[in-house]
Amino acid sequence: MANVKTNTEAQRMTFWERIYLPEIARGLGLTFRQMFKPTFTRQYPEERWIPEGSYRGRPVLVQEEEGERCVACGLCSRVCPALAIEVRAAETTQEKERYPEKFEINMLRCIYCGFCEEVCPEEAIVMSKDYELVFGSQEEGIFGKDKLLVPVSQLQERLEFLRQWR
């Protein structure tokens, strides 16, 4: 540490810096200028933010014309770190053979990590852009198939994003 230059207290600050007041005036000038700059506030209920495709909002099930894409493999339930997903499989006579009889996501537990979407082999569960989640009771926080199914047309942006970066 031979090159370290040591300063005494007096050398570190000039007289004008040590009496504080001019520096305080400079600081006040800075904050005064800030007052006239444009604000960043979004007037929320009137002005809503529309997220990009990369946004991880509420997880939803993709619904196609013949029904949901989900084949009830249970991988999402398995991978979910918050144990928020419950799937019960059932069989049909259709081409896909399996479908979820019960698919529930506990939105009070969900941490929006997107693992369910990543692990899904069918691209059946994806993260939507929906970030407005309010419920009045704990029971309302458990979303069943009625709330989870979203038509594929509304999820195009997210699906394209997933294919682009997969």
Binding site: T31, Q34, M35, K37, T39, F40, Q43
Partner: peptide, 10 residues
Amino acid sequence: KVSAWIQNRL
């Protein structure tokens, strides 16, 4: 209000 303006808020 003043604190908001200084911090570029409303």
